[in-house]
Amino acid sequence: MPLLPDLFLTFFKIGLFTFGGGLAMIPFIENLCVEKKKWISHEEMMDITVIAESTPGPIAINCATYVGNKKAGILGALISTLGMVLPSFVIILVISTILDRYLEITWVAKAFMGIKIVVGILITNAGLTMLKKMKKKPLGIAFMLVSLVLMLAVNIFSINFSSVALIIITAILSLIIYAVRGRKGGAR
């Protein structure tokens, strides 16, 4: 098969069969792009994982863009990314047109009341998993605790402060702290 349709179909498949998103799809991408298609090497896959974790946006999009660009330049990146997104786009579009009607049914509404409890726990659990993997440096722990307490207060007291503002402030603070430590000649 010519490369461009192959890229499209492969990422379409990845987009169609990976549930939950994020890091869950890395093994699937590795199986298809490294082992079956031999588009990228294992080292490059590691590289992708680092890029995906250090850049914003959906991890799947980072992967598709990387592989597509590697094999066929910007056009390849575009085609792989669109292939990746198309399945969920169509599925959610269909769901969105029928969802409201289903939510009016009493037992469906009750089911989603139960699901709402699970979702809160899933998010907390994801946070705890990230916390376990975090490098435990004093500065990092301080940033984590301040963010946690601040954002809890923002939510509980309905304070008008977005997490984007906190992210920008933290980025600037990290830069300043790094620059000051560097000037003192202190090793990190």
Binding site: G120, I121, L122, I123, T124, N125, A126, G127, L128, M130, L131, M134, L139, G140, I141, F143, M144, L145, V146, S147, L148, V149, L150, M151, L152, V154, N155, S163, L166, I167, T170, A171, L173, S174, I177
Partner: peptide, 15 residues
Amino acid sequence: GLKPCIIGIVLATGS
């Protein structure tokens, strides 16, 4: 610096 900050935000939202 961002990683711990994000973890704090996720934990706050979840809890």
